[in-house]
Amino acid sequence: MSMVAVNQAEEPKAGSRWILPLIVVLLVAAVAGYIAGAELDSIESRALEASNIVEKTWQHVRLVLVSTAVVIALGVPLGIVLSRRWARFVRPPVLLVANAGQAVPSVGILVLLAIAVGVGFRMAVVALVAYALLPILRNTIVGLQQVDPAVIDAARGMGMSPARLLWKVELPLAVPVMLAGIRVALILNVGVATLATFTNAGGLGDLIEGGIATNRMPVLAVGCALTIALALLVDWLAGTAERALSPKGI
């Protein structure tokens, strides 16, 4: 989804923290039970073979992991650079372009790249990275900018060098907001990776698209259920990691 949030995960109640993984487990169990019990024709049973499902799922996860790793490696350093004082004239136009990019549909980027450059895994990764860059870039900049100026002033007053200031003070204080951006990027990537099927890059979208194309609702339903389960699982993992990695006391 093209939802960009700057705000961080709210602290869930101890009980409700386990609702999401429970739903994921139930969804996957329901899918497994359904495949085992349903009468499937040849097209359906070929699409819903365990090996095929595992392969599509792995393709999907690989797309998400690779593109998220790349987008973090690109976005965080770029965000840090853009947050420096001397970059303050470059910052607004970059953010403007990045914000405007949000209005471009993800499927559009994917398709344009496929037509102009080519199809397959690498191009899909490029499209995912282009689309997920904004939340990471923006949250890195916002996270660094919202650090209390009085804290920075105090740190400089005690003689910290700019590099030490960045590492010891600014980045640790910006981490919660940056993590929120990474979480949004991850969720975006899970969603956009579903569309990679249109450019022959595989993933769970293959099941959904195959189900629509061959008019096999069981295949479509399994594809949708697994996609949703994956999205919820990633969201939950990211939220849990976000809380665990945020420095204590913030």
């Binding site: 989804m1 969720i187 899970v190 969603g191 956009v192 990776a193 579903t194 569309l195 979208g205 959904i208 189900g211 629509i212 479509l220 594809g223 949708c224 996609t227 949703i228 999205a231 919820l232 969201d235």
Partner: peptide, 9 residues
């Protein structure tokens, strides 16, 4: 967080 293609489908 649900991927839009999955929800549409």
């Amino acid at each position: 967080t649900i991927p839009s293609f999955a929800l549409f489908a």
